[in-house]
Amino acid sequence: MSLIRCENVSFAYSGKNAVSGVNFEVNAGDYLCIIGENGAGKSTLIRGLLRLKKPSSGKITYGDGLKPNEIGYLPQQTEAQKDFPATVSEVVLSGCLNSLGMHFFYSKDEKRRARDNMDLLGITDLSDRCYRDLSGGQQQRVLLARALCATKKLLLLDEPVTGLDPVIAGELYHVIRDLREQKHITIIMVSHDVNGAVREADHILHLANGQKFCGPTVRYINDPIGRAFLGGAAS
C-alpha cells in the first residue's frame, strides 16, 4: 500500500482554486520532487499533505498507518525566527515534541535522539550556538535535524535549498540523499531548482495550478513538458 495517495485533489483559497486535479501516490522509499512556477500551488499542496489545509475536493489517503506525528517537515523560514533567542539544541529537541504524548518533559530517549540527529547532520559542535547567528546552510541543517526528530518514515521539505549558494545547496542535497539511503526515509520535496530536482529525485510532480506531469524522472526528461521546463530553466 502506498504511503500517501491523492485522488483528484483540489485546494482553494476563498473560493478560487489554487491547485486542482492532482493525482499521485508516494510509496515507501520514494524521492518525489514537486516543481512548478511561483504560485503553481506547490506549497499549498504541501500544506494539504500535512493536513494543515483541507482539500476542497478529492481525497488524500494515508497508508501504512501513517499518523500526523510520524511526518517530519522542513518549512520555509518564518520572519519571527530572525530575532528568536534559541540555541541549536533547543530547536532540534523541539522536533521530539510529537512523541511526548501525555508527558510534560523530554525523556533521556528523546534527548539522545536529538543528539544523534545533530551528529548525523554534523551540527553537534554548534549545539550551544544561537540559531539566529548561523548561516543559511547551517540553519537548514538544524531544521532538518529537527524534522528527523519528528519522523522515521516521511520527510516533507519545502524549498530547502532556496537562498543557499550552489556549494552549500549541493551539500544539503547530499545530506538528504544519505538520509534516504541510510534511514530509508521517504522524501517529498518542493523545489525551485529544477535541475537539482531532476538530478536527485526519482519521481517528479510538475504543477501549474493543475497537474502537468507525474511520473518517474527518466520519463520526465524525455517528455515534451519536461524538456520545455528544463530548457527554460537552463537558459
Binding site: 511526518i71 523541539s94 511526548l100 524534522a147 519528528a150
Partner: peptide
C-alpha cells in the same frame, strides 16, 4: 512550567508544530 516545551515549540514554529501532530 508544565507546558514549557510545548509553548517553546509553538512560539518558535507554529506551522512545524501543527504539521507534526501537535
Amino acid at each position: 512550567i508544565l507546558f514549557y516545551n510545548r509553548i517553546f515549540a509553538v512560539t518558535f514554529d507554529e506551522t512545524f508544530a501543527a504539521a507534526t501532530g501537535t
